[in-house]
């Protein structure tokens, strides 16, 4: 439905609902930090941004001009390749999977006396991977500057355009 609908407003709402459902999925998978980030960012901010964009542009999509067979073929081939890639993966929830046996036990052992923060995700994010998080804030800051630079003069340009027309 989300693929075929041409009403962009419905699409924005569906994508917000999708974020909320995926947040519930993250809770089920024990990833509570990811779940509330997804609920706040995906279902909240992202939907607001979408609606703002729709208000500034248009609310309906034009009918597609060409047949969808080539994209369908490309997507099917890519999907088949990806599924072939998952055939060697460990089973879901397997405690002996390589991802669980590498550095994870060491983190669990060291965090209580090295950091002392009960939430392991917070401890890793803010302490062991602190530089990474700092780089992330730099990325967000840059994106914010980009948005401001693109939209700052929008109202002024619009006003000038209206004056020229009248």
């Amino acid at each position: 439905m989300a693929v075929r609908t041409r009403s962009l407003f419905a699409l924005a709402m569906l994508s917000g609902g999708f974020s909320l459902v995926s947040a519930a999925l993250f809770v089920a998978l024990d990833a509570v930090d990811v779940a509330f980030t997804e609920a706040a960012v995906g279902a909240g901010i992202s939907t607001v941004l979408m609606l703002g964009t729709l208000a500034l542009t248009s609310r309906y999509e034009r009918a597609p001009a060409h047949k969808p067979w080539l994209p369908l073929f490309v997507v099917t081939v890519t999907g088949a390749a990806l599924i072939y890639g998952t055939l060697d993966m460990p089973d879901f929830g397997d405690p002996n999977a390589p991802a669980m046996r590498h550095v994870m036990p060491e983190y669990l052992e060291r965090i209580p006396h090295e950091i002392g923060v009960p939430n392991i995700v917070t401890a890793i994010l803010a302490s062991y991977r602190g530089y990474d998080t700092m780089g992330e804030t730099a990325v967000v800051f840059t994106a914010g500057i980009g948005v401001v630079a693109l939209l700052a003069a929008l109202a002024r340009r619009r006003r000038r355009g209206e004056e020229e027309e009248s």
Binding site: A31, G42, S46, I124, L125
Partner: peptide, 22 residues
């Protein structure tokens, strides 16, 4: 549950919203 994917994906979500807004 393994917390390392959670940490990495938190970063991915935040960077994702930054690129989306841009």
């Amino acid at each position: 549950t393994n917390p390392l994917p959670h940490v990495l994906m938190l970063t991915a979500i935040v960077v994702g919203i930054a690129t989306t807004s841009l």
